[in-house]
Simulated scan of single mutants.
Amino acid sequence: MRTKYFMKLATLCCVTLGLMACASAPQEPPVERDPRDSLEGFNRAMWELNYEVLDPGIVRPATVGYMKVVPTPARRGVDNFLTNLREPDSFVNATLQGKPSSMAITAGRFLVNSTIGVFGLFDVATKIGLQERREDFGQTLAVWGVGEGSFLMVPARGPSTVRDTGGDLVDAFYSPLGLFNTPLTITRYVLTGLTQREKAMSMEHLLEDSFDPYAFIREAYLQNRLYEIYDGNPPEQDDYDDSYLDEFF
Rank of each mutant, 00 (worst) to 15 (best):
M7L: 13
K8G: 06
A10E: 07
C13Q: 12
C14F: 00
C14T: 15
C14A: 15
L17S: 08
G18L: 02
M20V: 02
M20Y: 01
A21S: 13
A23W: 09
A25R: 12
P26F: 07
Q27F: 11
P29L: 12
P30N: 08
P30A: 09
R33G: 00
D34N: 15
L39E: 00
L39C: 09
G41T: 13
A45L: 06
E48Y: 02
Y51K: 04
Y51H: 15
L54D: 01
D55E: 14
P56L: 07
R60I: 10
Y66M: 08
Y66W: 13
P73W: 11
V78R: 01
N80H: 14
N80L: 03
F81C: 10
R86D: 11
E87D: 12
D89V: 12
V92K: 02
Q97A: 12
Q97V: 02
G98P: 04
K99A: 10
K99M: 07
P100A: 10
P100I: 08
A104C: 07
V112T: 11
S114A: 13
V118T: 13
F119V: 15
G120V: 02
F122S: 09
F122Q: 10
D123T: 04
T126S: 15
L130R: 02
L130P: 01
Q131M: 11
Q131V: 10
Q131P: 00
Q131A: 13
E132R: 15
E135H: 04
G138W: 04
L141P: 03
L141K: 05
V143E: 03
W144Q: 08
W144T: 03
G145H: 05
G147L: 01
G149Y: 08
F151K: 05
L152Y: 11
M153T: 04
P155G: 06
A156R: 01
G158A: 11
L169C: 10
V170K: 05
S175P: 03
N181C: 01
P183I: 05
I186G: 01
T192L: 09
L194N: 03
R197S: 11
M201T: 03
E204F: 10
L207K: 11
E208Q: 14
F211Q: 09
A220K: 10
L222D: 07
N224G: 04
N224H: 12
R225V: 06
L226A: 13
Y230D: 08
D231E: 15
D231V: 03
G232E: 06
G232D: 09
N233V: 10
P234I: 08
Q237V: 13
D241N: 15
D246P: 00
E247K: 12
E247D: 12
